[in-house]
Design a protein around this nucleic acid. Sequence first.
DNA 1: GCATCCCGCCAACTG
DNA 2: CAGTTGGCGGGATGC
Length: 384
Amino acid sequence: MALPLPSPSPSLAVKESASGSATYCRKQKSLGLLCSNFLSLYNRDGVETVGLDEAAARLGVERRRIYDIVNVLESVGVLVRKAKNTYYWKGMGAIPKALEQLKEQGFRNNDEPIDGKSGKISDDDEDERFSNHSASFQDKVDPDSMNKAPGSFKSENRKEKSLGLLTKNFLKLFLCTTSDMLSLEDAAKILLGDARNPSLTRTKVRRLYDIANVLSSMNFIEKIHHPETRKPAFRWLGMRGQTDSERTANALVHKESKKRTFGTELTNICFKRSKMVSPIDVDINEDIKPVHLQGERQPVKCNTDMCNSDQVPDRVGPSAPVCLPKSCDEESNEAKKSHDWESLASTYRPQYHNQALRDLFVHYMDAWKSWYSEVAEMDPIQVI
DNA sequence: GCATCCCGCCAACTG
DNA sequence: CAGTTGGCGGGATGC
């Protein structure tokens, strides 16, 4: 899909206060939310490849953030690198196998199951033997890597510190240990050869936070507090019998249930740390609940359609897919233009928790309609 | 005040 | 060598 893509930078999370001033809203820019949106965007039938530029544009984030997501997803088998800028989409169905392989690798590299506290895990199954720093397990080499040509030390050192590899090893800590609860600091120390270096540990912890956010958005882990120390930690949830769609769906629910206090944050209209964008920069996606309609409330029937972000630069929500809801009025017209996003729309129909959110949605719909009618007159929306 | 983690610089890597 | 990739840590935000 060759798209005329805008710079993602304008799509920033902003929140407008009652006074009209704006503040940066960190939550709306989180990697976990971005991951949820990423999955909602690509986890569907017919997706074969993922373009990084396209993903960045659709999600309204900088490419750098896409790398973070992609690296973690690649570690759990959801994506496989195809070429520069392009990944194969393997889907959530590839996860169990990937985890099983990680588990095997973990046990193969360590003679016996390791304990979450004292165990050690190779810092790099494939590359660590070329490492030049003091990892604990440099002598434990993944046999699969034996036929790989060694690269330069710098190259290997870089790989060894990659987010993808760190993700794998972090997962192995859960998969290959008896403990299903682990603090990130402990994980960092285990995964680092040099646990004495506070600076290294701190950096590792930062990366683990990134990873944990993505994994928790996929419901692989959940944040808890250690019962004794009250220190924050993460608990392994694993697959726990969830289907692919359930996992993706839960990923969306998760964002609301874990990262937001209901009713306290009605919009995703946020400011980037210092820059401003359109106050209509709403992340509608975050307020979308997966279907499983069992309920009382029938939300506004809404068809979603992907618009070329080139044409909606200021309306792209923070890390939300460039996917804006349309009213019933427009539905028939847009149906002709719309494509596979309809299936997504039917799967993730909005369900709002409270009246305020519903009101916001109506408000957003009105704003969108107003804007859309203007744009439609000027230049028809291109469909991806 | 500590936990969290976004942001973007810039070096390494790649085609 | 231009474009891609992604490590890294400063520092802002959240609690």
